[in-house]
Write a protein that binds this DNA or RNA. Structure first.
Length: 810
RNA sequence: CCAGGUGUGGCGGAAUGGCAGACGCACAGGACUUAAAAUCCUGAGAGGGCAACUUCGUGUGGGUUCAAGUCCCACCACCUGGACCA
């Protein structure tokens, strides 16, 4: 069979007959299968694309055979930095290169012959798409979840632009090498933190990999603890600290405040002023990356002030130190050197006392073995409790004296969405000198991104230089006003795209029609890389919950089930690139055909884990396909005539039904390698049966047809062709996945292992329908076994049906 | 440092607590062939034995269990994230 030719043939027929068209009238059986859309890089479709799209397409085909109305749309995440950087280098406008690249990728993706529903395509840089990105922004703005705030950004003075964290390498600009400075600028943020609790609890009801859920949990970083107020000596001012270890309050020997903290100026005494100011000045120059590196030494300076521990009334000194960050919790930390590594380092450096609290009776805090350095302290009042109980008792006491309370903090920060870049979705905001920041009227959306030629980043947003764009009137008061020059982070574009896919065909006046979208979503199965665990996957969940709250959606989790593909690596174990791969996907498709490539990918590596690409097996997969072809065509031609149904038939029937059952299970868990293995076993069984002279015609026919249907998701063109060659009606993808006959998966006889004292001593064949008692009787009557157990007492008999018998004797 | 994950033949990889190594590759042997390739069949974890057979085996050490690759504890190695989150 000429694989390359038949693939062209069937791709055309599938397209001409619109075989995979999604049926909007049958939404009760819909299955929304989504693969994370990709950035149009313009490179040739590489093996990674095949791995991602090809294999999830096989899953989609499997769901189709199960009778589902599969919705598998495709689109492009088209805004973003790479096109812009490319433009700065080559002078080709981002819009032109992006359109060009999309055209290339569309053509190649279509050539894959996958079931993509192209009529529903979305492209995030199209005004009819980003109209809704802006609509979403306006909703968030109206509900107080989008707002502007001064915040530090990385700024390269030589390139005159803000740059992303990833572009700062060792505190230096990646492109020009000059030192990056931190600069405060007004930035747009989304208050994702309002949903922190829900983002956490929602994880319990979705079918996602545990690993991904853990990543999100840690990222949100919920910390349960307490706030404690320390009164300043000789003043009414108090310093509030947050701690998750309030049970160590007896061990506090100092307090530490972040250099940027507002209260620092109030704490500093005359004698210490010079040192403190110097330290604060130095700290403000350090960028966050150096400051937060583990290796940097813990430095600080005494403020001259003391505070009173509300529980012990002890007087402890207050220090300023940059190991405390101002943005988390209260920006002030109590120093317990006996229980915290950082506090310990700090105390040693500045010769502060180290105290270790006996937190739990008879138990030392295992976190830090610092006892040798410090004094052991204990409290009569709280001894005898576990540390968790002590925490509660202590906070209750603090509450009574008005010096503390239970408190929960999250590490999750506001989502910064403003970008001082050209190639993104314009923020639909007008700045008016009278009304302030005003949202553009919904009826005036989209705010179209102008086609400008000077898109070089300038630190303020290149759109600012485009007068025609910037000059407008205030939607509220009608006075002349200016537009916002920033564009949106591309993660905003992709935070709701799964909602737009079903709607993109209809072009309604609303973002989506409520009834329809609530029937189409949530996405039943989402496939994509784990690298998006704490970005895209978190942002989409946030936006979905927000849209539910404003009454648009009836559900609050966008993706019911999630799978991550592993990565296909080059021979050097590194990510595939032009450097380490000599062959492209096209090379393989043109020699072996796409079905062989797909089957080989399915079989040779675990989908979830990925691994190093090896093309050696491709020729063997091709051989396997030829083996299938031979037996299928032979049995089709031969047509046995015997009607008898003996043990050989039973055996083949057994393998067939077991394969039907297990391949379905394997597909459901994305264990494609095992699914292919089971199909190979079936083919082996067919060859074994083929050696017989007398064959059962009905069984042969059923086996051939079932084999083709079972194999069709994994080798679509190949099986479609064979389906036609054996004279069946187009298309194999309108067939149903065969159901198995449970009674056929029962063998007449099974081999059981016989153990004496848990050691295997024999293997016996027994009837599979026998009861445990009958099996035991046979085992004990066996010559060899009875010899082994004669004269001994049987203490215990364990029978595992169809598996083994274990006799415990003495 | 911290968190999470992984560890099974020469290789990719299978195993709801129940006969470890399915399936495939590489390997060896046989059939077909003048021959090779292809194809079909057979063998195969490692060690020992002519053999029947036997010992050891899922990173290391312990534990639970009649039974552990699988569950629990500790450790080692590798991979991936996060960076001082109080």
């Amino acid at each position: 069979m000429d694989y390359v030719a038949i693939e062209k043939k069937w791709n055309k027929i599938w397209e001409d007959t619109k075989l995979y068209k999604f049926d909007e009238k049958k939404l009760d059986k819909k299955f929304y299968l989504l693969e994370m859309f990709s950035y149009p890089s313009g490179a040739n479709l590489h093996l990674g694309h095949w791995w991602n799209f090809g294999l999830s397409d096989s899953f989609g085909r499997f769901k189709r055979l199960q009778g589902y109305n599969v919705f598998q749309p495709m689109g492009f995440d088209a805004f973003g930095l790479p096109a812009e950087n490319y433009a700065i280098k080559t002078g080709i406008h981002p819009e032109d290169s992006t359109r060009h690249n999309i055209a290339i990728m569309e053509r190649q993706l279509k050539a894959m012959g996958a079931m993509f529903n192209w009529e529903y395509e979305v492209i995030t840089c199209n005004p009819d798409y980003y109209k809704w990105t802006q609509w979403l922004f306006v909703q968030l703005f109206k509900h107080g979840l989008a707002y502007q705030k001064e915040a530090p950004v990385n700024f390269c003075p030589s390139c005159n632009t803000t740059i992303a964290n990833e572009q700062v390498v060792d505190g230096v600009c990646e492109r020009c090498g000059s030192e990056v400075i931190r600069k405060n600028m007004k930035q747009w943020f989304f208050k994702i933190t309002n949903y922190a609790d829900e983002l956490l609890s929602g994880l319990d009801k979705i079918d996602w990999p545990e690993k991904t859920k853990t990543l999100q949990r840690n990222w949100i970083g919920k910390s349960v603890g307490a706030e404690v107020d320390f009164k300043l000596e000789n003043s009414n001012e108090k310093l509030t600290v947050f701690t998750s270890r309030v049970d160590t309050l007896f061990g506090v020997t100092f307090l530490v405040i972040a250099p940027e903290h507002k209260l620092v100026s109030k704490l500093v005494t005359k004698e210490c002023e010079k040192d403190v100011l110097e330290y604060v000045e130095k700290a403000s120059k350090k960028d966050e990356i150096t400051r937060t590196s583990t290796t940097s030494p813990k430095t600080g300076v005494f403020t001259g002030s003391y505070v009173i521990n509300p529980l012990t009334n002890e007087k402890v000194p207050v220090f300023v130190a940059d190991y405390v960050i101002s943005t988390y919790a209260t920006g002030i930390v109590m120093g317990v050197a006996g229980h915290d590594a950082r506090d310990f380092d700090f105390a040693k450096k500045y010769h502060l006392p180290i105290k270790q609290v006996i937190v739990e009776k008879g138990k030392k805090d295992t976190a830090l073995p610092y006892c040798e350095y410090g004094e052991l302290v204990n409290s009569q009042e709280f001894s005898g409790f576990t540390s968790e109980e002590a925490k509660v008792k202590i906070v209750e006491k603090l509450e009574k004296i008005g010096a503390g309370r239970f408190k929960t903090n999250v590490r999750l920060r506001y989502w910064s969405v403003g970008r001082q870049r050209y190639w993104g979705c314009p923020i639909p905001i007008v700045h008016c000198s009278h009304c302030g920041a005003v949202a553009v009227d919904e009826k005036d959306l989209p705010v179209v991104l102008p086609h400008i030629t000077d898109y070089k980043p300038d630190g303020k947003g290149p759109l600012g230089k485009c007068k025609e764009f910037m000059q407008t009137t205030c939607p509220k008061c009608g006075r002349p006003a200016e537009r916002e020059a920033d564009t949106l982070d591309t993660f905003v574009d992709s935070s709701f795209y799964q909602l737009r896919y079903p709607e993109s065909l209809h072009n309604n006046k609303e973002i989506f029609s409520r009834e329809y979208v609530n029937k189409m979503l949530p996405v039943n199965c989402y496939v994509g890389g784990i690298e998006h665990a704490t970005m895209h996957l978190l942002y989409s969940r946030f936006i979905t919950k927000f849209l539910r709250d404003i009454g648009c959606l009836d559900f609050d989790e966008p993706f019911q089930r999630l799978f991550h593909q592993g990565m296909v690596l080059g021979p050097d174990g590194k990510k595939m690139s032009k450097r380490n791969t000599s062959k492209t996907a096209d090379d393989y498709v043109n020699t072996y055909g796409s079905d062989a490539l797909r089957l080989h990918m399915m079989f040779s590596l675990k989908y979830i884990d990925g691994g190093i690409w090896n093309d050696e097996g491709l020729k063997h997969i091709k051989a396997f396909m030829e083996r299938v072809e031979r037996i299928v065509l032979k049995w089709h031609k031969e047509k046995g005539d015997s009607k008898n149904y003996g043990s050989a038939e039973k055996e083949l029937d057994y393998v067939l039904n077991r394969t039907i059952k297990e391949v379905a299970q394997n597909f459901e868990s994305f264990s494609f390698n095992s699914a292919v293995a089971r199909i190979m076993e079936l083919v082996n069984a067919m060859y074994k049966y083929d050696t017989l002279k007398e064959k059962n015609a009905e069984l042969m026919e059923k086996t051939v047809k079932d084999l083709l249907v079972i194999l069709s998701p994994s080798a679509p063109h190949f099986t479609e062709e064979l389906w036609e060659q054996i004279g069946e009606k187009y298309s194999i993808f309108n067939q149903r996945y065969p159901s198995f006959d449970a009674s056929k998966i029962v063998l007449d006889e099974v081999e059981i292992a016989v153990q004496i004292n848990s050691k295997i001593v024999a293997r016996l064949n027994v009837g599979s329908t026998l009861s445990n008692e009958e099996i035991l009787k046979i085992v004990k009557n066996d010559e060899k076994i009875s010899a082994l157990i004669s004269g001994k007492t049987i203490m215990k008999e364990i029978v595992v049906p169809k598996r083994l018998v274990n006799l415990i004797v003495k």
